[in-house]
């Protein structure tokens, strides 16, 4: 199975790797939402953190960490890139199929894109929960 150029680019040089602090630190911060999806037993875990500009309501920065295959890592990289600068509502609109298309994911790797979409939604929900 040969991978697309886009996928390899995102895998070899992923964007936005990192976090805004340790698990304990980010928990305390109202401007940060964290989404962790997947499970080690399933072979992929994605952690996505969003930093929201509380005056504009836009995602000003995003960071990810991923335990998973190349497609999972590339999907996380794309997801973080796409949500930066978007409002929460706009970010909620991102569909896994968009990521499938962007990276030309083969059918066995579609679950990686689903995970990326889920991680965006989970991070937004976490942010909203902190700010209600």
């Amino acid at each position: 199975m040969a991978y697309s150029k886009q996928l390899i680019k995102h895998y070899e040089k992923p964007n936005n790797v990192g976090n805004f602090g340790t698990t304990a630190e980010v928990k305390e911060r109202a401007d940060i939402g964290v989404g962790v999806v997947g499970a080690p037993e399933c072979g992929d875990v994605m952690q996505l953190q969003i930093k929201v500009d509380q005056s504009t309501g836009k995602i000003e920065d995003a960071k990810f960490k991923c335990f998973g295959c190349g497609s999972a890592i590339a999907s996380s990289s794309v997801a973080t890139e796409w949500i930066k600068g978007k409002t929460l509502d706009e970010a909620m609109e991102i569909k896994n199929t968009d990521i499938v298309e962007e990276l030309a994911l083969p059918p066995v790797k579609i679950h990686c894109s689903v995970l990326a979409e889920d991680s965006i939604k989970a991070a937004i929900k976490d942010y909203q929960k902190k700010n209600t």
Partner: peptide, 10 residues
């Protein structure tokens, strides 16, 4: 890149 590695170290 691994969130599990971070968790382990924390």
């Amino acid at each position: 890149l691994s969130p599990l590695w971070d968790m382990h170290n924390e």
